[in-house]
Design a protein around this nucleic acid. Structure first.
Lengths: 196, 196
DNA sequence: GATCGACTTGGTCAATCGTCCAAGTAATAG
DNA sequence: CTATTACTTGGACGATTGACCAAGTCGATC
């Protein structure tokens, strides 16, 4: 038999999970309390018991998912020895995101919602900054020229690819890998393959 | 004295302009017929007289704006002699888009809406494909290696920058220009400045 | 067994939603 | 002057919205 508190946490979690499904499915501003409760399999009134507002629920759900993806990237990078290996690894991870899958769309929906919600923007900026810093540190440790600027461009390019993929069948990892590899260079080095 | 037809076209135009304002402002799914009519300064019933549905109005408004931006890019590229000059020009044009301005947000909102509307997706794909082809043709004419793939990555990177700019103050044209310039190379050439 | 507090239920509230339409205006064609 | 046509008005329709709440359930504590 579960305690009330345990069941409460479970309901909270179910609502957050349902939100993570529904935001990509219907769009941020089209997720309603009732649809949310129905998807989570709980009563409608629970939304405003566990969360101060619908917006607060959506913010927490989105930041949860994005935070999890960011947290997974660090270890993935550390496993790679060279710049080329790291790029390979990131593109491999990107293959899981077709641009139409829920996580890709959730990312973009959250970027947009952040333009209209100051709290969300502040927390999202913190997550994106952490990702960029990790990437820049990894690049610098491997001799990459202008690591901060390269990390900024690389992070933007990866999200841009998620945005374009559903509209551009040519945008496969295999096709873009040779192009993105040109971004990776070492100071003074003339070779375009910096990872060797 | 204006004819009925002239006034009708004017109302249609006012509705499309109001939609182009409101989609970025409130989000695609949060634009309502009444808000739209109020912003356009016309009666609510006119929305469904001039358009079959609210969605059709939003689609047309968004594709109008995006089509206009795409149409402006061709001439801008043609003016540039070298690869470096062209990149410079594109980054200059990108400076008009802070990522928070209405046009930037409208782009992203439309990408997302296209994931949920087949008609919109088809027409948006056509526009993006045209932009990519123009860019690829321009790159090829100036000796760029793998022009199609480079154009795909460049187009995605530019949209990605629009997405990241509000969250990343370091993402200025000046900071990213040297990094993006690495993307431009000629076959067999070892120099990273291909435009000279 | 009584009391407490956390959690849940099912519903109300005013406001807004997309769509549709009957009636009205006014410029044009016969 | 009389249709005819295009455009406009203001409101009606049922459905849905975010927020809120009184009443009820139930395990934990004394």
């Amino acid at each position: 038999m579960k305690t009330s508190a345990e069941r409460g946490r479970e309901v909270r979690r179910k609502l957050l999970d349902a939100a993570a499904d529904l935001i990509p499915e219907r769009g941020w501003t089209a997720v309603s309390t009732r649809i949310l409760a129905e998807r989570a399999g709980v009563a409608p009134g629970l939304v405003h018991y566990h969360f101060p507002s619908l917006q607060a629920l959506l913010n927490e759900a989105a930041l949860d998912v994005i935070g999890r993806v960011v947290a997974e990237t660090g270890p993935l990078l550390e496993r790679a020895e060279t710049l080329d290996d790291g790029l390979e690894g990131m593109l491999g991870a990107l293959d899981a995101f077709t641009g139409s899958d829920p996580v890709s769309v959730l990312f973009t929906e959250t970027y947009l919602a952040a333009a209209r919600d100051e709290d969300l923007r502040r927390e999202l900026t913190a997550l994106v900054t952490r990702f960029r810093r990790e990437l820049a540190g990894w690049l610098r440790a491997r001799g990459q020229e202008a690591p901060e600027e390269t990390a900024s461009v690389l992070a933007a390019a990866l999200d841009g690819m998620m945005l374009h993929r559903p509209l551009n069948p040519e945008l496969t990892s295999a096709a873009v890998a040779p192009v993105l590899r040109r971004l990776l260079t070492r100071p003074g080095g003339d070779d375009r393959r910096a990872g060797g």
